[in-house]
Every structure is written in C-alpha cells, then in structure tokens.
C-alpha cells in the first residue's frame, strides 16, 4: 500500500490548544477523504488522549510540545501522538465497571472507555524517552 500524505501538527501542553487540534483534524480528515463519522470518532478520542497527556504526563510545569501525525489507515485514519513527558500509557488505568445506577455511577475513567470502544486499535509505546500513542479508527 502506497504511503499517503502525512499531516503534522505541533501543540503546546495547554488545554486551550484542543480547539486548534480539532479544527486541524477536521480539515486534514476531509482532505484525506476520511468519512465524517470516522473523523468525528477520532476527534473525540484525540481530545481524550491529549487531555490526559496535558493533565497527567508532566511532572513539572513548563512549556512542552506534543506532536501529532495523521495518516490514512485503510478506509480510516491513524493518529500518532508524541510527547516527551514521563512514561505514560493513556490506557493504563483500568476501565470503570458499568455503573448500575446513576447514584452509583463513578465519575471518571470515561475517556479511556471511549477510546477503547470507539477506536479499532489503540497502541502505546515508549521510545527514545518519548511516548507514542496511536489511535486507529475503524474503516
């Protein structure tokens, strides 16, 4: 399979960057011909993953860079998120048990649950002192 174009975006470790990320994803997915439904899935999961990284991957405050690379993956898309925070697997926390009632509902762990259920594959690796987390949509 010939490699298609790769789109790249660099974000600061600031939650205010999420809107810029979503706008970039929407445009790039559109240009690559990814369906609006799969682009929407990826937007949700990228929001969850990058929010987790910004919130939990850094031991000290300071300006850091998060690099996003988007490629076509079959009929869908693959997004790799690279950061230089401490070793941090966005899926490491166990998924919450299905709450039986509203009163018992645990508030939290929802982002991980969404990534696991909305993506065809989520893969984490640590390499060269950096974290690489790849979200792959369904076709």
């Amino acid at each position: 399979m010939a490699a298609g174009p790769q789109y790249q975006l660099t974000l600061a470790n600031d939650l205010a960057e999420l809107r810029r990320m979503s706008a970039w994803l929407a445009q790039a997915c559109g240009e690559m011909g990814v369906s609006p439904e799969r682009a929407a899935d990826l937007d949700v999961c990228a929001n969850e993953a990058v929010t987790n990284i910004i919130s939990y991957a850094y031991d000290a405050p300071g300006n850091r860079e998060i690099v996003l690379r988007l490629v076509r993956a079959g009929a869908g898309a693959g997004l790799t998120i690279e950061d230089d925070g401490r070793a941090f697997d966005p899926l490491a926390a166990p998924p919450p048990a299905a709450p039986a009632s509203l009163a018992q509902a645990a508030i939290g762990g929802l982002g991980i649950k969404l990534m696991r259920r909305m993506m065809a594959d989520c893969a984490y690796r640590r390499s060269g002192g950096k974290n690489f987390f790849t979200l792959t949509t369904y076709p």
């Binding site: 979503s22 929407a40 937007d43 949700v44 929001n47 969850e48 929010t51 509203l102 009163a103 509902a105 508030i107 939290g108 929802l110 982002g111 969404l114």
Partner: peptide, 16 residues
C-alpha cells in the same frame, strides 16, 4: 455538536 468525557461528567453529575 461535539461531546467529550468532560461533558459527559457534567451531565452525569447534574443528573445524579
């Protein structure tokens, strides 16, 4: 037109 987990948490907390 878009919902992330933080929004779900807000819905859940208020519903609760």
């Amino acid at each position: 037109d878009f919902l992330a987990s933080i929004g779900i948490r807000a819905l859940l907390l208020n519903g609760k």
